[in-house]
Design a protein around this nucleic acid. Sequence first.
DNA 1: CAGTGAGCGAGCTTCCGCTTGACTT
Length: 776
Amino acid sequence: MAKNLLIVESPAKAKTIEGYLGKDFTVKSSYGHIRDLVKSEDAIDIANNFQQKYEVPADKKQVVSELKKLAKEAETVWLASDEDREGEAISWHLFDTLNLKEDKTKRIVFHEITKPAILKAIDNPRTIDYNLVNAQQARRVLDRLVGFELSPVLWKKVKPSLSAGRVQSVAVRLIVEREREINKFQTEAAFKIVAIFGKGKNAFKAELPQRFAQQADAEKFLQDCIGADFTVDSLETKPAKRSPAAPFTTSTLQQEASRKLGYSVSRTMSLAQRLYESGNITYMRTDSVNLSDMALNAAAQEIRSAYGEQYHQQRKYKTKSASAQEAHEAIRPTYFDRHTIDGDNAEKRLYELIWKRAIASQMSEAQFEKTTAKIGISTRNEDLIASGEVMKFDGFLKVYLESNDDEEDNQQDGDNAMLPPLQKGQQLDLQELSATERFSRPPARYTEASLVKKLEELGIGRPSTYAPTISTIQNRGYVVKEDRDGKARNYRVLTLKEGSISKQEKSENTGAERGKLFPTDIGAVVNDFLVQHFNGIVDFNFTASVEKQFDEIAQGMKEWTDMIRKFYAPFHKDVENTIETADKARGERELGVHPESGKKISVRIGRYGPFVQVGDNDDADNKPLYASLRTGQSIETISLEEALELFKLPKKVGVFEDKEMTVAIGKFGPYIRHSSAFYSLPKGIDPLDVSTEQAIEIINEKRKKDAEKLIKVFDEDPEAKILNGRWGPYIEYGKQNIKIPKDKDPNTITFEDVKALAGEAGKEPKKGAKKFAKKK
DNA sequence: CAGTGAGCGAGCTTCCGCTTGACTT
């Protein structure tokens, strides 16, 4: 048996370290935290100085018992969890749970998984830092108190099963408030002037720095330019340079993978996890931009041999984030000489992104020569400006260019072009001058990745929680990630060419969104409720201010229970007060009155989501009418006209095979319902204007297509079928879709097989149906 | 992919951070 047991947080790390340490060391992993507060309400004894009740969760029992056994046999136990607040707490939980002895236990830390770093750590053991542990307990207790007191308030005042917390509620707030900024945004139009001079290879663009709000002024400008002289008034050439970005942290990796590769935050993380486990990259949950000395050297060597000495420049980056705990290195390739790796396509692309970014971070800056020409107009006081750029040395741009959230801007001005050789005083030949109406843009909606960026800036959340937080706010129904179609918008273009001005009206699509985060009505209502009653918690600075206090606890300057007590007393009072006095929050809004009946029309949140109501609840003679809002509509923005439209559907369109056909609009667009089957309406057909014949034809079409997909129906139970799907044949059994296992032939599969497979997949119907059954 | 929408009540839900698997289309 090995004399030493060394425990780290991650099994992949354990494997690497075991290789460095030799036979005397057994290296094991705790798989993160091994204990947590019990789930029940008595986890924290508030009256008794916030005494906590911890337990080992079921899925950690095995890890703990194995570690216990090994610890008993070892002479020395080395606690090597990460050097941050959570890591210190993990060490303490291990110490406590495994019943370790003070004199046989050593606490060590390292920030990089390299042999020298680990040997150095072993030479410099310390004891558990209880101040740091206390800071973690304060963090844990505060989050539990906030989450488990606020959520039940929402159950009472808004809807059951909702949740609130220090992190998620701020994330939702950001999205709700951004949507409102966009809704109230007033677009301003102005005419942008662009001139084209010269011909062929020597053609170049110049722009007027100011814009004209009025068409008349733009037109006047063009008029004045007819027959005017254009002269190069001044010419300035300046060197410019550009430096590479720091290597990736979790948050920057998520942002860049989203922009460049289109990966969602969770996709990026699971791909990175695989790269980490296969030994290709360092740890992927980090807030540090630091590279180990070993990595700096390896990168230098790689750059020299692949690109040459002049491309190398050693750089050490400093984190800009105040909340960074820097327990790990930046995300980098384990071996810089691996330009690419084995793995699937997605993994390869992510690896290459990481490799390029890390390599580029150690390369020299790119150098440019930037030329700006001022072009005078004989008939006007303004100058046109032309600018061009010539790259003198590519430097880091040889491998990597960081992308930008606002690609649109770059495309629009397209200025990095080259200018032809120009001289001061030179007369220019105007080819074309245009005034194009352009519009101011509202702030951009958040993507998953830009939300992570914002949260990180606010110091809210940690690398390990960004992806789960984004999932939580979507799972709770506060936020949806969606594509939305844009609208057509007309804009005017005036063009001066060959001495005459022409006017055109063009059309463009605007406001189309892809993969953006939109608040739902319930998200907005919950947010407003929290802002009204718990402003302190959803304040953007709340986390920063408690973090400051956690730091003081960590430095031994503050007692953690004091801090929590001071926070809890007023907070709890707010909770009690709100439960007692606050009205139920439904986000009700009145839209006006019905044009014919004069009844009141309002929208609000109901048990099943947002809906419109026509008429009063207490009008006993005339029951009110209800209609649910559709995807893309919201309480805040729906108009009276749109609300009235909702009552036109569902609409009966006739009878077919003795059963009613109804047209309605569902989650996936308009459809025909016939008995229990649904048939999507083909695009271009107005759901309000479907004839009986058309409906029957659509149903028959769909049936024909389904029949083509059908391979076999089982005699034993017509609910069991074999169908040809997108990825080949599969079994449909009632509501379940079952994959055909590799060892079975779809042609010879028996009903017995189907039943067995259905049993494995779980006889229970899927999610929705299960919930329904439970309610009944 | 519908329809529903009062209020009561039993018994449920819920936080943030640290880790991996075990799942399926």
